[in-house]
Design a protein around this nucleic acid. Sequence first.
DNA 1: GCAAAAGTGTTCGTTTTACACCCATGT
DNA 2: ACATGGGTGTAAAACGAACACTTTTGC
Lengths: 249, 249
Amino acid sequence: MILNSVSVDCVIFGFDKSGLKVLLNQIDQEALRRILPRQASPEQIKQIFEKHPVLNSDIYWSLFGGHVPEEQDLDEFAKTLLYEATGLENVYLQQIGTFGSLSRVPYTRVITIGYYALINPDYYKLKQSTLTRSLQWFNLNELPRLCFDHEEIIRQALLKLRQEVMYRPVGFHLLPEKFTLTEIQSLYEVILNKKMDTRNFRKKLAKMKLLIDSGQKQQNVAHRAAKLYQFDIQVYEKLKIEGLNFRIE
Amino acid sequence: MILNSVSVDCVIFGFDKSGLKVLLNQIDQEALRRILPRQASPEQIKQIFEKHPVLNSDIYWSLFGGHVPEEQDLDEFAKTLLYEATGLENVYLQQIGTFGSLSRVPYTRVITIGYYALINPDYYKLKQSTLTRSLQWFNLNELPRLCFDHEEIIRQALLKLRQEVMYRPVGFHLLPEKFTLTEIQSLYEVILNKKMDTRNFRKKLAKMKLLIDSGQKQQNVAHRAAKLYQFDIQVYEKLKIEGLNFRIE
DNA sequence: GCAAAAGTGTTCGTTTTACACCCATGT
DNA sequence: ACATGGGTGTAAAACGAACACTTTTGC
């Protein structure tokens, strides 16, 4: 049994040099019909399609979501969804908030709980889910047409991520295991949408003592190779609880 | 029609010199029966009571909550609940998060969206709701027995309030229209559970330019009367968006 | 006059900001 | 040798923390 009036939607964030991205799911009309209320008659479905032009265009996209099973914890279900969409486990996952406006889904009443996930680019090679026709990363500035209020959910997810990243060391989940200082800086710049001073940024990082020098360097770059760092899990756990005692801004 | 599997619960915070409080609702077993699933048989209800000893004690308490009507926006419904419980409108109300563990309510599956409200003590004279047998303010350190996971919801509400109060000027909603600097300081001390230095605290406040001197003073106090301040709504709106550019800590 | 809380400045160490040049690597 | 990004220090200003005494009022 599923709870017809409750769904979960996951905003999956990724990061690379071209910026911050979200992973979206292209749905065709058939998939949409599966999302829409099972009690709807063909006539009602026809009306829904007519009233909502986005549903008639050939290509549109959605977050990864689904109705909550009656016999599964909410947070568990969010993890399950993420696993089905990406094949990944142990991903950083946070609740954004709950979206419950009457008109957010046409015709039927569905309250959705939004989550966001941060994906390490080492794992970009995602398994293709059986549930989804096609997966694609979109730059946050170039989102395609999205169904329902999914654009709003992404906007809220980004606001939440911004808050989070300033006070807790979570941004690191978007980086590969070993990364350069320039990569972190660029991550913060993209998320906070703000240029920062390299020397001052590095001083702040150094004070945190969160990073350890892996001893390795970049390979095959057409310039001086940067050192690769990892983060210190003990310090990470401490900072996750205490918060960063300074703001990165 | 209501959504059987979705409820809202409101944590109502108040503040006076004795500290931070929550408004709770005493429920008797009859009221509880109304909360429990309508589809439950008398035999099942008997089992629920046996398994959950708290339900058998004469006195226990709950947050203000209810199942979401199918035809009402979630946020609207939270406001309605608050109005029914307190008679107040235009109260500061924020979503805390959604609680969806399988076992949070015995026997039936209910996901609840938590909200917290900040009440100005000028309005403590609450109208008695028809729905509630009795209302009472409880100090946060002396909470009574609470049903379901309501204690956890209150704990989360407090954490959220702490976050909020450090970076946004929302704490003021807990104060009367005109208040003294000592009252604000004591508000921050109670919420953050931390003593602060009066001179340094006042310097920070002054820098914000959020307060305006009302020209009035306390009356009938057995010591030097303190100035009463109000807050400047224009500056408040600005700070609510930008955040406090410093942390009160 | 005394009890109780209001109100107020300075010093010192730390943090933040602004700013420019040399270094290592691949082509 | 040049293009590309990597890496580093200093000085001035702002901020945060610690700290104690005088003022006003009611009794």
